[in-house]
Amino acid sequence: MGKEKLRNDATCLNCGEQVQHRFCSYCGQENTETSKNFYHLFVYLFKGFFHYDSAFWRTIVKLFFKPAALTKEYLSGRRVSYLAPIRVYIFTSFLTFLIISLFPSSEPVKSINTKTSQVNEIVSSAIDSLHLEEKSMEGLTKTGILSEQTKDTLQKIIHSELDSVQTAINAKAKASAPSPASIEDESQVTRKADYWFMRKWMKVKEENTDEEIRQKFSDSFTQNMPKALFLFMPVFAFILFLFHDKKRWNYFDHGIFTLHYFSFLLLLTLVLFFIDKLYPLIEYHPILDWIYLLLKGAGILWMIYYFFPAHRRLYEQPYVKSFFKCCAILIINSVLLFLFLVVIALYTYSTIE
């Protein structure tokens, strides 16, 4: 990079100051020719990659094999030799979810002819469902879509729902009885949620097969995962903040550790994903089968175990105390993450069309 031809003009193009050597002493910009041909562009990208690569690989090695070492280096002020934590996370998150999205999540249909009857059933069901709102229960029963027993059951459910709604309305009108009204309100909210879910399901079923629904949900959920993890990281850092000395460790320190830890999880997820995708392409052999199982098992164990040495080395606490803190932190965050993913799943489900 330093062998590029310098400009004859010693005036910096960025700040206008005089450049004494190759780099401007005021803004740091290199005083080289701005006009480049394709060759220079190719060389620039190639050299730029490997120049970036030195810091990148140094960062990745420490992140992957030395738990908390990268965080300690950053917090101690040694930052130039490594990538910034947020850049590491953005890079690993983008690369992981991009590569995962490039691979199909389900097997394509190998034979259409063998499933002709199923296709006909789907088409018939879709045609009927398009006019479902125009048919009454009596009409559906006469055409054979509903049995008499099913019709009676649906009518009972509808009457029960109407009675429940009327009861809730009457309960609201009685100001002297707040507790029963509160119970009815909660019951009504639950019924509305069930009604919304079933209505959404029937609407989606009108235009999609079960396989298409699963595919759309999987694709949309995968697209929402980067945003979900990014939003969950402050929660993870806050739990760390609650479990440690507030005078010694501030929220920023926990945030840096969280960025590195989540970057590691994403990176290892990508490695395990590659192992799963590459293994079927290799010709079967018993030894290779054992190697695959060992690599997969070692990766999963390392993902689970990594947090314990990382926590102990960063916060410098005794083994037993650090172990119990790690267990509590992971359990709390696992529960919160599960609830968070449920919300993301419901949001994903609501966006399916």
Rank of each mutant, 00 (worst) to 15 (best):
S111D: 14
A126K: 14
G77M: 02
T141W: 06
T141L: 09
K151G: 03
V109T: 09
F97V: 05
L140A: 07
L83T: 01
T92K: 05
A126F: 13
S160A: 11
I90C: 02
G144W: 02
T153Y: 13
I112S: 12
D152E: 11
L83W: 13
F91N: 02
F97P: 01
I100T: 11
K156T: 06
L95A: 15
I112P: 01
T116E: 12
E107S: 07
D128A: 04
I158N: 03
L83S: 02
T114V: 04
S93C: 14
F91H: 07
H131W: 09
S136R: 04
E138N: 12
V123T: 13
S147F: 11
V119L: 15
S136P: 01
E138V: 12
S124W: 01
K110D: 10
S136C: 02
S164I: 07
I100V: 15
T92Y: 07
E161D: 12
L132A: 01
D152S: 04
E133P: 00
A84S: 09
L83I: 04
T153A: 12
H159G: 06
G144Q: 02
L83C: 03
V80F: 05
N113C: 06
K135M: 08
I127W: 10
T92G: 09
A126D: 01
V123K: 12
S81M: 10
T143V: 12
T141N: 11
K151W: 07
S105H: 10
K115E: 14
D128L: 08
E148A: 09
G144Y: 02
F94E: 03
S160I: 00
T114H: 08
D152F: 05
I100W: 08
P108R: 13
S125C: 10
G139W: 08
Q118K: 15
Q155E: 15
S106K: 10
T96G: 00
V165N: 02
P104L: 09
D128H: 06
L146R: 03
I86H: 15
E161S: 10
L132F: 04
E121S: 08
I158H: 03
T143P: 05
F103N: 06
L102W: 04
V88H: 02
S160T: 09
S147P: 10
L75T: 15
L98V: 04
N113M: 11
I90K: 02
V165M: 04
T150S: 04
S125L: 13
N120S: 08
F91R: 02
Y82G: 01
T114K: 08
K142T: 13
P85C: 01
L132Q: 00
K142F: 10
P85H: 00
D163K: 05
N120Y: 04
M137P: 09
E134R: 12
M137T: 10
I100H: 05
L130W: 12
P108S: 08
Y82W: 05
K115D: 13
S76K: 07
S136V: 01
Q118E: 15
S76E: 09
E134H: 08
S117P: 01
K135R: 12
Y82M: 01
E134P: 00
I86Y: 14
F91G: 02
Y89F: 15
L98G: 10
N120F: 06
R79F: 00
I86R: 14
F97I: 07
V119S: 14
I90V: 14
I86F: 14
N120L: 05
V80D: 07
S93M: 14
F103H: 09
V88M: 06
S76C: 02
G144M: 03
S111E: 11
S106P: 00
G77Q: 01
T143C: 08
L132D: 00
